[in-house]
Amino acid sequence: MFVLLRQLRSIRRAAQLERGSDGRWLGIRHVDAGSCNGCEHELGLITNPLHDIQRFGIDVVASPRHADILLITGPITTRMAEPLRIAYEAMPTPRIVAALGNCALGCNVLGDPGEMIGSVEQVLPVDIRIPGCPPTPEEIASHLLEALGARSGPPSAGGQGTSAHRDRAEASAATGSSD
């Protein structure tokens, strides 16, 4: 155990990620809506010691009730459309929707069109787009950190997708309407 702990300490913070903001928190609920499992493998690595995304206040949560971001992978099969909708409805507002991977973005999707609904955008309003087949853990982490920065920091010049979300989220919070 001590050898492992020593080894873990030595491999910490190997990834060159920009520092997020202190004191902020983003809970992710992942839904696999028809993925080939590539995005899941890479997403699962953002919490390992090479990336350690938790140090920035981002973590995967077990329930959509505790989530800020709904992170969706896959081309949305007909059978996953309803579970996905239920997960989205279960989230508190304001809520952020992230499409992870090319399939979720509707790019180069393979399969029988009759078995699929289409990209995430055709089902839910998308705030964050993370392209790649699959995107690497570092790319996923960077997009999430950008979202975290845009969420409560001053408006950034680059993050048009997430700042647009913030406006929308604030508007819906102000009027009490649901997304």
């Binding site: 080939c36 399969g111 029988d112």
Partner: peptide
Amino acid sequence: KHRGLERAAEGLEPEVALAHAARACA
């Protein structure tokens, strides 16, 4: 997560259909 990859491969040239076998699982 049934995407009908086998059906979608039908009628394609084998070189093109290779992508469907690849997409089954990363």
